[in-house]
Design a protein around this nucleic acid. Structure first.
Lengths: 134, 134
DNA sequence: TTTTCAAATGCAACCAAGTTGCATTTATGT
DNA sequence: ACATAAATGCAACTTGGTTGCATTTGAAAA
């Protein structure tokens, strides 16, 4: 996978090809699990300014390159790939031991007793447990 | 519902009966939807110190008087009642318009393709949509 | 290639949620 | 009424995230 590839992804999304974005993209593409701001800051050796990083995370999310995950910790994590717009075929597994967040497939959404007058638009599921490494 | 009742609840849980706790308990018992720290601070007319409030929210949660909810906003909300330990019969509905969080029943949990080696302990569901008032 | 201009960056200052240490106060058991 | 452990209040702090602004840079047009 060469640089021309990353540049292409950014171009398709209408985002300028910058050093920061290339580094971020490179990082996200080779990761299996979700990263928090501090994970990223650490991994990228603090080379990226805080606000620049946050702004790029937002751009990437809007462009559908990554998606934002809110596990029950209260801090956002980010993972490669777009979140499906409608219905539910994506869930997040949070390991209670190592705090790692994994994306998972869902074969059938939960059955909900939503009262009259309530309109469901989106369902997000957090699974807590222990991952295979722990 | 009189004060002796509230005092009884605290006693059963091994918590001292204090002014702050009585006020908090009184407030939670008459609420239908989840409250954030700032909601509580506002509702209680800022009479309660920040750290005291947080510490009591933690105590109440540990005692099973309230449960903590993490909608995708990143800030914790608290609602009366204990969260079921095993399985899933509780979900949270977040109104996209008014930000109100409601507790809901779940009749059937989602079907998940959890890989081998992963142990599921708990499933939390956030439903996003529009509530009956909005 | 050079010019140009919007977009991206870096920096500092800021806000809010939540935590911690510590001195003081208060609820409860004896 | 007394003693003691727990609860409170306060200040200081940490951290995730945002904002305003001056400077830099990517990319498209000349």
């Amino acid at each position: 996978m060469e640089n021309s590839n990353f540049g292409q992804i950014l171009k398709e999304k209408g985002l300028k090809k910058t050093k920061v974005r290339m580094a971020l993209l490179h990082h996200f593409l080779q990761l299996k699990h979700a990263q928090s701001y501090s994970d990223l800051q650490l991994a990228l050796k603090s080379e990226i300014d805080k606000s620049t990083l946050y702004r790029n995370l937002t751009s990437f999310e809007q462009a559908g390159i990554i998606h934002r995950i809110n596990d029950h910790s209260g801090i956002s994590k980010y993972a490669f790939g777009e979140l499906p717009k409608e219905g539910q075929d994506h869930a997040h597994f949070v390991c209670e031991t190592c705090e790692t967040v994994y994306c998972m497939e869902v074969s059938a959404p939960p059955q909900l007793n939503v009262p009259k007058g309530f309109k469901t638009k989106n369902i997000q599921t957090i699974i807590k447990g222990v991952c295979s490494k722990c």
